[in-house]
Design a protein around this nucleic acid. Structure first.
Lengths: 195, 195
DNA sequence: GGTAAAAAATAATCCAGGTTAAGAGTAAAA
DNA sequence: TTTTACTCTTAACCTGGATTATTTTTTACC
């Protein structure tokens, strides 16, 4: 039930039996149906979420009504509106389930308790934040320097499993093109494709 | 000498006199001349850097030879090629000084020692990484959803001091347009500017 | 299975921002 | 104080990707 999360944590820090059971006592299990929201723009984010099955996404909606996907979270990933979660102010993101999903949540106030009781968790979440920062920096550079085709190829390389199950539309909203252009690009004769 | 850094740290964690002097013993002071490199693409990043005066920048160079700026680091900011620093592999970024600068560096191996000796620093760097993550996420959404003019206005709002001292070219390389287009945009009649 | 809704394909037209090139300021270095 | 090298501007032209609209295919759900 919690094994996926515990083994994820074990990669970074070692917990005693007591620490582990204290941690588990702070967790809640939930299920989300496809298209069900975990968090809406304007809410204040109270939970950090770990996905054990299915897939969630976080995205913002720009002033023209277009969705831009910040992150996909398949099994074994954390997801949150970091800004709202950290600052405890209304967030700009929406988070919902792309497929039926099972998640584990932990409340913000409980994370603070956890940091007090088991400071090792500061390390775990530091490493997570650093890795997430690195991947966002990479993505930013890709958006500034690569063509749509290159960003698409990158995406396929980074998420070989996801690309098979996700609607094209969602991929377009992640790499930063319209669904129409992505379709055109994928059906373009090979000879015309940019490397 | 180290007061700027110490007061930055004091905002997040409290250090005893012993902890403080141990920390200081790990630091090195350096000076960089304008245009001098701290780090070049392909190097393995051994230092984390805190700027006490002047301004550094980190940037990558795309396959067409264009620079894209990841971060400006004026006084009171940290800067590093996080990927290279964390993974200890050759990095993709360059870091150099835009103006003559004074910096404090700490070696990666010493940071690990610091985490062992004073675990509170895990918290300090966790909070830093989280804040940095939030601002990179914001920037990513801005790049996906806003026009060049809006990104420029955002930049002016976020860095009111920097905008006065930076060459336009550097601002263009940050917001993701060519210097030519930025110039055109800034000299466009007000009536034609997008909101 | 039937049908309503969403997703994908196709195509014509449009535009924000890129490209190229050349000249005019301006700062730095010698 | 004169080179030398950036930086900024201007302008004509170009293009990757957006927009809009219509049709076809797939998927979800009764």
């Amino acid at each position: 039930m919690f094994t996926l999360l515990l083994s994820n944590i074990a990669k970074h820090i070692h917990l005693s039996k007591e620490e582990e059971s204290f941690f588990i006592s702070l967790l809640q299990l939930k299920k989300l149906k496809r298209k069900q929201f975990l968090f809406k723009e304007g809410d204040i984010h109270k939970y950090c979420t770990f996905v054990t099955s299915g897939c969630l996404r976080s995205y913002s909606i720009d002033k023209n009504g277009f969705e831009h996907i910040m992150q996909f979270a398949p099994a074994n990933w954390w997801i949150a509106d970091m800004y709202s979660f950290v600052a405890q102010k209304p967030g700009n993101l929406n988070i919902d389930a792309i497929f039926d999903s099972e998640i584990i949540t932990i409340q913000r106030t409980d994370i603070e308790k956890l940091y007090q009781a088991v400071p090792k968790f500061e390390r775990y979440f530091r490493v997570l934040a650093e890795n997430s920062l690195i991947s966002h920096q990479n993505r930013l550079m890709d958006n500034l320097g690569l063509s749509a085709k290159e960003r698409y190829d990158n995406f396929c390389r980074s998420y070989p499993t996801l690309i098979q199950t996700l609607p094209q539309k969602q991929v377009a909203a992640y790499i930063g093109v319209t669904p129409e252009f992505l379709s055109k690009m994928l059906n373009m004769p090979i000879t015309k494709q940019a490397g």
